[in-house]
Design a binder for these strands. Structure first.
Length: 412
RNA sequence: GUGGGUGUAGCUCAGCUUGGUAGAGCGCCGGAUUGUGGUUCCGGUGGCCGAGGGUUCGAAUCCCUCCACCCACCCCA
């Protein structure tokens, strides 16, 4: 048997209705914030991600699906979409368009990791980028917007975490300080942290090992090292969030794994997701455009929702919806009559299923299993009189209604 | 890349310790009901027991190898 390849999966009904719901909500919210959709290619030149995401990141060093094209060029399935969006922004001179460029996207990304709960090799992200301003007001608006999506998608019980990771001026100073502290303290930490202390000291701050926490508490906070530009920026973001009464927690130890993040970073976590508890991550990336070859500075901020994870968290308790009406014709003449009737009702916007074979008993059985709200019986009597038997499947009540009566009853 | 867990019917699982050639519930199909679903009752469909090898008169069960899936680490959405 041929199966879906490791880390990929088929999304089947009824789950796909949840996916559609999440995507529809996102599009509505994006639209209300005047974000417009951008669709970039699924694969790009490998260099784009190597330079955009960061040569030393895990994504680039061990997780990319990279292959050689027939002409020898190196291509890569996108592991994330921000680099592509910035590439398109530069390529098409979107900086020449008026105002902040507000773009959103949704679609599959690819990373070759070991799959586990909430992690797949092909996974889906819904994201947005606001490019062209470094105003903290944009940061707050972006965070507000993404929380709006989560709420309207039906997610509750989540926690928003924010932080500032500084900029090219202040972060190096902090990292230097951190390295110094770790020289004395690293030996008491877990094995992973000892390794991180050398390779990526910021990661030590994010360690989840319980025994390490007392020591990690004593390490310096990046917030104490923010420079004269970053500190007021972060304060303003917080002020704007407070103005909106948006609940969040400042987590100075929140670090992100992609090189391009600077200043504001944020994340939303949810309890029902297993070890991969992050539903979305995002942040500011003011230097990214330049590092991808833009001659003009194009500061930006964006986020990406892990759609697989959001769907997982929202799916339970999502109501299954059956057809509005199940039409059960009795015999061939009735079927022809019922088919026209079904078409007209569908044109009116109702979801209508019609039995194309089988006895009445069987049809009602199916109407019940499919969760139809009403069943309509169309037989010789009904065709002759124009009065149909309409059955409320929940109560079992059956009434005789004419053609207009059908619309009226199922329309409520 | 590393560690742990699990593989038996479409699904959830029992059986494995103490080898004797497969079970339950749910689902699906049909009947009780010639134009009336849900509850109930009756019947039926359905599995080379993950794959290969070994031990044995005999293996779902014991041993070995492999594979797949899941969870976790790393890291991230």
């Amino acid at each position: 048997m041929i199966r879906a390849v490791k880390g990929t999966r088929d999304l089947l009904p009824p789950s796909t209705s949840v996916w559609n719901h999440v995507e529809a909500v996102a599009r509505q919210v994006f639209s209300s914030y005047c974000y417009q959709e951008i669709r970039t290619p699924i694969f790009e030149e490998t260099q784009l991600f190597a330079r955009g995401v960061g040569e030393e990141t895990d994504i680039v060093t061990k997780e990319m699906y990279t292959f050689e094209d027939r002409d020898g060029s190196s291509l890569t399935l996108r592991p994330e979409n921000t680099a592509s969006v910035i590439r398109a922004f530069i390529e098409h001179r979107l900086d020449q368009r008026p105002g902040v460029q507000k773009l959103y996207y949704m679609g599959p990304m690819f990373r070759r990791e070991r799959p586990q709960k909430g992690r797949y090799r092909q996974f889906f992200q819904i994201g947005a980028e606001a490019i062209g301003s470094e105003s903290p007001a944009i940061d707050a608006e972006v965070i507000e917007m993404v929380l709006e999506i989560l709420g309207r998608a039906g997610l509750s019980g989540y926690q928003a975490l924010i932080n500032s990771v500084g900029c090219a001026d202040c972060r190096p100073l902090f990292i230097a300080r951190l390295r110094e502290e770790l020289k004395d303290k690293a030996h008491a930490l877990c094995g992973d942290c000892q390794r991180r202390a050398a390779s990526n000291p910021l990661r030590v701050l994010d360690c989840k090992v319980e025994a390490d926490q007392p020591i990690i508490e004593t390490l310096p906070s990046i917030l104490d090292y923010l420079c004269e530009r970053c500190r007021p920026h972060f304060a303003a973001v917080r002020q704007y969030l407070d103005d909106r009464s948006i609940p969040y927690e400042v987590k100075p130890r929140l670090v992100r794994g992609l090189d391009y993040y600077m200043r504001t970073t944020f994340e939303v976590v949810h309890g029902s997701l297993g070890a991969q508890n992050s539903v979305l991550g995002g942040g500011r990336y003011d230097g990214l455009a330049e590092s991808l070859g833009s001659k003009i500075p194009s500061p930006g901020i964006g986020f990406s929702i892990g759609e697989d994870r959001l769907v997982m968290a929202v799916e339970e308790g999502f109501p299954a919806r059956g057809p509005d009406l199940y039409v059960a014709p009795l015999g061939e003449p009735a079927l022809r009559h019922a088919a026209v009737l079904a078409r007209d009702l569908r044109r009116q916007g109702f979801s209508v299923e019609m039995a194309v074979e089988g006895k009445l008993k069987r049809s009602l059985e199916l109407a019940n299993k499919l969760g139809a709200r009403f069943a309509l019986i169309v037989g010789d009597n009904e065709m002759e009189s124009g009065v149909y038997a309409l059955k409320d499947m929940a109560s079992g009540d059956q009434s005789n209604v004419n053609r207009a009566g059908i619309t009226e009853r199922i329309g409520n």
